[in-house]
């Protein structure tokens, strides 16, 4: 016999929070692997995504479908389950982007291990701000989900513009550096991809928060409809 829907929902919420924690830790490790030039850590990030994140995502989706079939939820329960399905998918996509960042670290190492580990290649300072803002958005998005905090969700949606702006700045500056030091173009091109992945992570945090607003208020705020 299936447990009652409230128990199911509490359990599911726990699974999403756990998935969020795994993805957040993996994101931190990916950034650390890039800044500290640690290929072992980058490899570990990719393994965690493949083994843990993907598997939790499937478990959460199956649980949602089972609850929907057995309990036929309505109102806040329905909105919660629809939100979980979408948040689950966003977290898995964030996981993939984190793995993509780690993959860039490994690629750079494999291209020229000595050069990569030398002091000549450093992640420019301007990345720090973008990483910090994206990590902050991620943490706040999960906090908004756990505490059903619509105000915080709105705040996160608005912060996305800052990450977009940071990415544009990084693009412009990296293009200039590539022109002035063409020898490092392979390394710098990979950093462009890291900036792009980080910006996409922030976009998924925004999606999560838009879904939290739907879960709480029942109104769809995607595509800047209400924001």
């Amino acid at each position: 016999m299936a447990p009652n829907i409230q128990t199911e929902i509490e359990t599911l919420k726990g699974h999403i929070v756990y998935l969020g924690t795994v993805v957040e830790e993996n994101l931190q490790c990916a950034i650390k692997a890039l800044i500290e030039k640690n290929p072992d850590l980058a490899y570990q990030v990719m393994q965690t995504d493949r083994v843990e994140v993907d598997s939790i995502e499937i478990d959460v989706e199956e649980a949602c479908l089972r609850i929907m079939a057995l309990h036929q939820p309505v109102a806040s329960d329905l909105r919660f389950l629809v939100t979980v399905l979408k948040v689950n998918s966003d977290l898995e996509r964030i996981g993939d982007l984190v793995a993509k960042i780690a993959d860039k670290v490994l690629l750079l190492y494999k291209l020229d291990p000595v050069k990569f580990l030398s002091d000549s290649m450093q992640v420019p300072e301007m990345f720090n701000e973008m990483f910090d803002k994206t990590l902050c958005m991620f943490r706040q998005a999960m906090e908004a989900f756990i505490n059903e905090d619509t105000d915080l969700a709105y705040k996160v949606c608005l912060a996305d513009d800052e990450v977009d702006k940071a990415k544009r700045t990084i693009y412009n500056e990296l293009e200039e550096i590539i022109m002035s030091t063409p020898a490092q173009h392979v390394y710098l091109a990979k950093l462009l991809s890291v900036a792009r992945s980080t910006e996409r992570i922030a976009d998924h945090c925004t999606n999560i928060c838009e879904d939290i607003i739907y879960m709480q208020q029942g109104k769809i705020v995607r595509h800047n409809m209400v924001l």
Binding site: N4, I5, Q6, P73, V74, A75, S76, D77, L78, R79, Q217, G218, K219
Partner: peptide, 17 residues
């Protein structure tokens, strides 16, 4: 009413609480 009820009483009834 079945997706975003306005009253908590309705919500509680239709969700089985």
């Amino acid at each position: 009413l079945f997706t975003v009820p306005e009253r908590k009483e309705t919500e509680d009834y239709i969700t089985g609480r």
